[in-house]
Write a protein that binds this DNA or RNA. Structure first.
Lengths: 153, 153
DNA sequence: CATGAAATCAGATCGAT
DNA sequence: ATCGATCTGATTTCATG
């Protein structure tokens, strides 16, 4: 992971359908060198995959919210994790260091659907006495782009 | 936006480098039909772009945190927004309905770098009396995949 | 890491259904 | 709106220096 790798990663995070020639032109590297580095980064798992960015609103998701969940005992974790995995509305699930156990990032078509998920599915699970929902009113910045730092060579 | 569009969007969110032939094969559509629908979805902005998913840890980001920020007066918003835009460590910035003004999603190499950002850059701005940082200990699920709902035809 | 050639593949277009 | 075919150009890959 050197400066060239870093530039490649920066570039393909912004232009995921670039050809090797385009990447090479942007960072000053030959096509074959780009090919080799890309293959290496993919094999190492640094590049975890490729995706299309879909506009959430255009896809019918009018509501974004962050939901805190409290889980009382470890034996109730499994069912919760299963729900998290199965619900595509739950984009993220983080174990946090706070008064709460988990923080979820949730998208839904409307407030009704959000309530349906939180009240009827999540809180219906055993061992979940409380939750707290933070509604997002507007989003000033939202990117999945990851800052790339050079590893200590 | 019909069922076929939905399937296309689902597919390309998981396989962002699929050829039109691969997409068509996966959802049962000809190459030319996929071509037309993709172009339409891109023109409409439903497809906002294409990106490589980079593993945050492999890219040197050992720390993930959510940071709440309180801003006292509207005239201090501009400088804050400018900072948000310029800092690649700040992946998301949401205006939230809560005791706080904003919720940030932040990635950093380590806790020191996180503190540097929060204490020395964010809180150094005028009109920001308080912030609260929630550290993520582990992440059970994290996807940028957006659920695609059919628009009312 | 660059070059260059070869083989493959992908994307746009067209007429027909 | 979709299909199937065709055509053209681009892209990846590989061997060599």
């Amino acid at each position: 992971m050197d400066e060239l790798d870093r530039k490649i990663l920066e570039h393909i995070q912004h232009f995921g359908r670039s050809s090797y020639a385009e990447i090479g032109g942007a960072i000053g590297l030959s096509v074959s060198a780009v090919n080799e580095r890309l293959k290496k980064l993919e094999k190492q798992g640094v590049i975890a995959g490729w995706t299309a960015r879909v506009d959430p609103l255009a896809a019918g998701n009018g509501v974004l919210a962050f939901v805190y969940v409290l889980i009382e005992r470890p034996e109730h974790e499994a069912a919760f994790q299963a729900l998290v995995r199965s619900e595509s509305a739950i984009q993220e699930c983080h174990h946090v260091a706070s008064d709460w156990s988990y923080l979820l990032k949730v998208r839904a078509p409307n407030l009704l659907a959000l309530e349906e998920l939180v009240a009827r599915k999540i809180k219906a699970l055993p061992g979940i006495p409380r939750s707290q929902t933070v509604i997002v009113m507007s989003t000033a910045k939202e990117t999945a782009t990851v800052p790339v730092h050079l590893s200590p060579a």
